[in-house]
Design a protein around this nucleic acid. Structure first.
Length: 597
RNA sequence: GGAGGCGUAGUGUAGUGGUCUAACACGUCGGCCUGUCAAGCCGAAGAUCGCGGGUUCGAGUCCCGUCGCUUCCGCCA
């Protein structure tokens, strides 16, 4: 080892010891004679002192040090003189008086500040990610990620779970997300697909009798990015046999309740986690991943509004729509311009318009006053529970649109009015999802969750007659407006799985060629089973209080799925393409003969 | 595929049609300095204002296009 101690380790009790430290020059304070160097390694920072009275040669060498040089130092630990201790740093009571200095490597000037937490353009950070990862924020976040992973592995291992790896080169299935594919050299024209999740394989492991499986699993989905979505990501994936829904929920809830205090200072809002059905969540929060840290729930005023003379309301109700409202506390004083901006936001979200009631001291003010009787207005206000000083926002439309608009506006006001506490994690379960939904584009039903999700027993006989009414044994765990994980009890019988494939418009032949292995496995004694998968980065992002998952990902890709550091994806050489039996359109070839190579 | 935001020295910002011959902070370089810890003081260098085109007597500033990053919608079994 080039060091006897790390830079976060030495204390007053170590004074007098001769030590060897190695790391990066974090800062240098050159007083001409005395030189102070803050030496940084992964574990902390220790102050070095170079004094010409101790070693003239070493002091002269220290004059040539620059930021981020990699050095090794030999010296004596010394308690700092009274009044010169730094209570803000763990090693602040000591310093190391350097007697020897070796420059292990020089460093170009970093393109951004490594020794301060200043904002830097993210493209620059990603281009030089190895430098960005030296900074405190990323060091802290990646260590947290590791702690979360380690905790989960121990927690589940202690409960009889076995971690089993499943292949990354797998089979393409057209259901679900777009696949990332890998050409086969040995089998011209054939492709592997990278797994979107280990779903089928973990179900097969249940057929194999492992009973309790988990995996910290890499997954790949070729869809557009979001602040909480990367093209490749990691899931905590788990599956259990001989369980029902509440067993999975209890396991996951126990895990999260134990995890949060073990790795963070965040407080869990409510234990046990609240449970909402999908219908309740959409009704009250306008979202299937509601932020339940604050109220402002959506109020249904369809019965009152539908009878008014305001045709926007009544015609929406006649068309099968709903009229709903949220109450923004303390916003009655909004200016005309602010109200107009809210109206524009509502239209941008898909509403035809936005009705408002400003609860002013002199009485309710609303642009639609002339369409409402005083009793109707009073009735709406009373239903919403609006008080003086509040602002009521009303949207009339099809249920889906109303939920979308008011749900998003609720989220906006949650931020705007600081109703959300960043130190709180408000977990909740969303249950009773619909099994299927109609897809206009494809002109068929598609699985809301995935086609292996079991229908509720009571709804099974509607699978063919009223597919949209069938509820699934599916559940999501959400926190602070993010979907943290989702799972279900699975189908474990061939006949029901075949009916499910038929319900999503899949022919027997297609089912056989794509999922024949699974159908066949179900005939060899598949136990009842179910599981859940949770996005690791989303969870760590919330634990770290970060605004996106790139901040907890070592080497993330940009929104256009590019790695700015390596420039992946890149062109292949003609020789590589030939070997893979791939013809690429001239317009999509590199203009250099050797591709990117 | 669509909508919005951003792009000015190494980094972060200011500049919203006319001494902008582009300012400030941090950093960098040179000098001084033996107790600093975001060290201090003095001085200096450093920017074809993302790229291309247009409007104008005049464009960092307005318009069009394009590229990059980002947020959201679609998409994400």
């Amino acid at each position: 080892m080039l060091k006897t101690h790390d830079c976060g380790q030495l204390r007053a009790a170590d004074s007098g010891k001769t030590v060897m430290l190695a790391g990066w020059v974090h800062r240098r304070r050159d007083h001409g004679n005395l030189i102070f160097v803050d030496l940084r390694d992964r574990f902390g920072i220790t102050q070095l002192v170079f004094n010409p009275d101790i070693s003239e040669q070493t002091h002269a060498a220290a004059s040539d040090l620059h930021i981020e040089y990699v050095i090794r130092v030999v010296g004596q630990v010394r308690e700092r003189p009274e009044g010169m201790r730094n209570p803000d740093m763990p090693t602040g009571e000591i310093e190391v008086v350097a007697t020897e200095l070796e420059i292990l490597n020089t460093a170009k000037l970093p393109v951004f500040h490594i020794n301060r937490e200043s904002e830097v353009d993210e493209a620059v950070r990603l281009r030089y990610r190895y430098l960005d990862l030296r900074r405190q924020r990323m060091q802290r976040n990646l260590v947290l990620y590791h702690e979360v992973t380690r905790f989960i592995r121990e927690h589940l291992s202690n409960r009889g779970f076995v971690e089993i790896e499943t292949p990354i080169l797998f089979k393409s299935t057209p259901e679900g997300a777009r696949d990332y594919v890998v050409p086969s050299r040995i089998h011209p024209g054939k492709f592997y697909a990278l797994p979107q999740s280990p779903q089928q394989l973990k179900q097969l492991l249940m057929v194999s009798g492992f009973e309790r499986y988990f995996q910290i699993a890499r997954c790949f989905r070729d869809e557009d990015q979001r602040s909480d979505r990367q093209p490749e990501f990691t899931q905590l994936d788990l599956e259990m046999s001989f369980v029902d829904r509440d067993d999975i929920l209890a396991l996951m809830e126990d895990l999260l309740i134990a995890l949060v205090p073990a790795v963070s200072d965040k407080r869990i809002a409510t234990i046990p986690f609240p449970r909402l059905t999908y219908a309740e969540a959409m009704d009250k929060y306008g979202s299937d991943k509601p932020d339940v840290r604050f109220g402002m729930t959506i109020v249904d005023i369809t019965d009152i509004a539908g009878k008014t003379a305001f045709t926007v309301f009544s015609s929406a109700v006649e068309a099968g729509g709903r009229v709903k409202a949220i109450v923004a506390p303390g916003c009655a004083g909004y200016t005309r311009r602010q109200i107009d901006e809210l109206g524009q936001m509502a239209r941008d979200l898909g509403a035809k318009g936005l009705a408002t009631i400003q609860m002013r001291p002199e009485g309710p003010h609303t642009p639609i006053a002339r369409f409402l009787s005083p009793e109707e207005l009073e009735s709406i206000i009373s239903r919403c529970g609006a008080q003086e000083g509040d602002l009521v926002l009303i949207v009339a439309d099809q249920p889906k649109t109303v939920a979308q608009v008011l749900g998003q506006m609720r989220t906006e006001f949650g931020k705007r009015l600081s109703l959300v506490d960043d130190n709180v994690l408000a977990f909740a379960w969303i249950t009773d999802f619909p099994l299927l939904e109609w897809d206009d584009e494809e002109q068929r039903y598609t699985a809301v969750h995935h086609p292996f999700t079991a229908p509720m027993d009571d709804d099974l006989d509607m699978l063919e007659s009223a597919p949209e009414k069938v509820r699934a044994k599916a559940y999501d765990v959400v926190a602070n407006g993010y979907e943290i994980g989702g799972g279900s009890i699975r189908i474990h019988r061939r006949d029901i799985q075949e009916r499910m494939f038929a319900a999503i418009g899949m022919s027997r032949e297609a089912a056989q060629s794509q999922f024949g292995h699974l159908l066949e496995a179900f005939e060899f004694g598949a136990p009842p089973h179910g599981g859940i998968a949770a996005g690791m980065a989303r969870l760590v992002m919330l634990l770290a209080g970060e605004p996106n998952i790139r901040e907890v990902t070592a080497f993330p890709k940009t929104q256009s799925a590019v790695d700015l550091m390596t420039d992946a994806p890149s062109y292949l050489t003609p020789r590589q393409l030939a070997e893979l039996h791939i013809l690429v359109d001239d317009t999509h070839m590199s203009n250099t003969k050797d591709g990117d190579a």
